[in-house]
Design a binder for these strands. Sequence first.
DNA 1: AAAAGACGGATTGTTCAACAATCTGAGAGA
DNA 2: TCTCTCAGATTGTTGAACAATCCGTCTTTT
Lengths: 225, 225
Amino acid sequence: MTFDEVLADLQAQARTTKHAETGLWVAAQLRSRIEAGKLKPGSKLAEEALREALGVSRNTLREAFTALHAEHIVTRIPNRGVFVAHPTADDIREIYRVRRFLEPAAVLWAGEAPLEPLEAIVKAARAAATAGDISGMAGANQDFHRALVNRAGSERLNSLMDQVLAEMRLVFHSMAANPAFHQPYVEDNARIVELMDAGDRAAAADFLSAYLGRAEAQLLAAVER
Amino acid sequence: MTFDEVLADLQAQARTTKHAETGLWVAAQLRSRIEAGKLKPGSKLAEEALREALGVSRNTLREAFTALHAEHIVTRIPNRGVFVAHPTADDIREIYRVRRFLEPAAVLWAGEAPLEPLEAIVKAARAAATAGDISGMAGANQDFHRALVNRAGSERLNSLMDQVLAEMRLVFHSMAANPAFHQPYVEDNARIVELMDAGDRAAAADFLSAYLGRAEAQLLAAVER
DNA sequence: AAAAGACGGATTGTTCAACAATCTGAGAGA
DNA sequence: TCTCTCAGATTGTTGAACAATCCGTCTTTT
């Protein structure tokens, strides 16, 4: 590595270093608790209580709120406060509109990226399925779809997909969870990798698009009940 | 319109009202000046000077900074300040990575949306071309690509595309502008609409993808000089 | 004379406390 | 039962303060 390369590396490091340290930390704390389901959809995030619990100032807390709001994880109602987002039917439609765009496109047009990560995730999902590990299956499913988009190699598409998947987790938390929901998708995902491996990316994209449509319909039916 | 619909409408209004009013207003002010080229890439946005010029508090100004930072319009260097973003070659590659994903997908999979808006923009672009109106052509070109993605009807894809196009404008501001750059794309866009109208969306998508590749190469060559 | 190190001024990062604006809920009155 | 009013509570916004970091200049060393 030349000296110039070291300089460039140091500069990149410096540019990506955390600068709003505390605010981001608070946002991460809240995010993890929301995604773990400890803060349920609809819950109000009272400023004063959180401020004291976290030991930060109101300004810092509100900075964290802004970040979570941008991620669609919380809802802001003016002069009323911040609430854990409670995805509606329209939100679910929007989520799947994005997914039916991003994921088939990734299957079709991210050709040169390796398939090994996908195969590894399918393997893990099968292991979780035989072990009856529901949350393991759910996690592997999310990992699979994230990895699919990740093959495009775009930072912005990755973060869009991360946001959408985070909202998906909120959807699961906001309805009575059906333990068997993720089961059929283990083999569906395996089939997609199989088709891609065989070079038939068009068929893989079609199959994926159809199954995203099925999943959407299933969630819409569940949420409208 | 029924009473319930009026209620829903009012609720939607209330939810979309500006809540961080001042901060968003400041962000909009800065954004418009940056995109108009009045604040050139690389310029430092000094806090104290802007604070006084805008008549807002430092806190509010910094809130606007974080918003612009999230849009990749400004760069933050810890303890050094905020600068108007200066897109690198890697940034251009990332922009086109996203565009070659979003736009062909929109051509292929946003089938039922009307074509009239696209045709109107092509007409406006031709008028600007015959009038020799460079910035009119540039604007129509951006409008065209935004409208293309807009047909998908997804709020998030729209805002991603808006961000990418905003960064494109920064690219144009950060290099010696070639007045003839936008010219050939007027007829290329017309051809895309033509192919879509004929029902041959696959051909339209291929054509679009190829021409995005050409544009990327052209910009990369210009920026590396 | 050139390079390294130390110092002071200026700018940014972070927090706190106060005031203004708005909403919620209870009670009075028709 | 409904509407209106008012007090308490919560949020939106701001200004000021302190700590941390950086830049330019001067001094020291070789």
